[in-house]
Amino acid sequence: MNLVRAEMRKLLGLPATWVASLLSLALAPAIALITTLQTRHTLAAGATIDVADLGFRDLAFGVIGPLVLGVVAVSSEYTSTGDEAPDARQLTVSLIAAPRRLRFLAAKTAALSVIVMALALSATVITITITRAAMGDYPLPRLEVTRMLAVALYWLLTALMADAITLITRNGVIPLTLLMVNTSVVSVSYLLSKVTRAAVFLPDIAGLHLFVRDIDTPIRLAPLAGGLVMASWVAVLLAIGAARFSRRDA
């Protein structure tokens, strides 16, 4: 418990965490607002539009905040202390304070999970509320609590995946580039799914099946199946990251 508290304090003490948190809370609602207003326009003009994913599709972009959090939680350990002590890194002190590496990692992952879950649940509630308020009497997706929890799970898994990849690369730039490019409106995974059916089982595409209903992929996964596929990826990546972290010289 001490270790988890220390890791929380560490994470919350970083300016990057606050920026990423703000992003988590503001991005999806902002996009959702623009989307709903557009949708209203279209509907008012008499066109038909599928509203099954209204609000939810916007939450898929909001994942950028948790992604940055996952990267920063690990990469901050490897950042140089400053110009005057370029070789010094926080990791040295972290391991002096908590030499059992797996325990240290478990505490870090727990702290990250708590923060991401809090942000994810808040962002989901805010986004869905805004969507419903802005749509007024127009048609809306049904209000399902499990679907909202599924969004939070997707955010959490994405943050953990970022955390695991950073643990493997020991550098924030690589996972950040990889994952941000793939959060794009047209992601690389989506492109791949147009060429090979196997791409549906990539973590992000599988994970989106958790809460997006209208996905244009060659195979459709049930929400539970999609979640399990993504969770397996995260588990494997975390295991590789943890194994490397505990074996390697710091």
Partner: peptide
Amino acid sequence: TVGALLDGGGAHRSRTARAHLRWVAASNG
């Protein structure tokens, strides 16, 4: 049991001195 000083302060550059010590203290209760 052990107090150690290896390569410099080892604080994350964007953390204040107090915040750095607070998390270290928390980690060992």
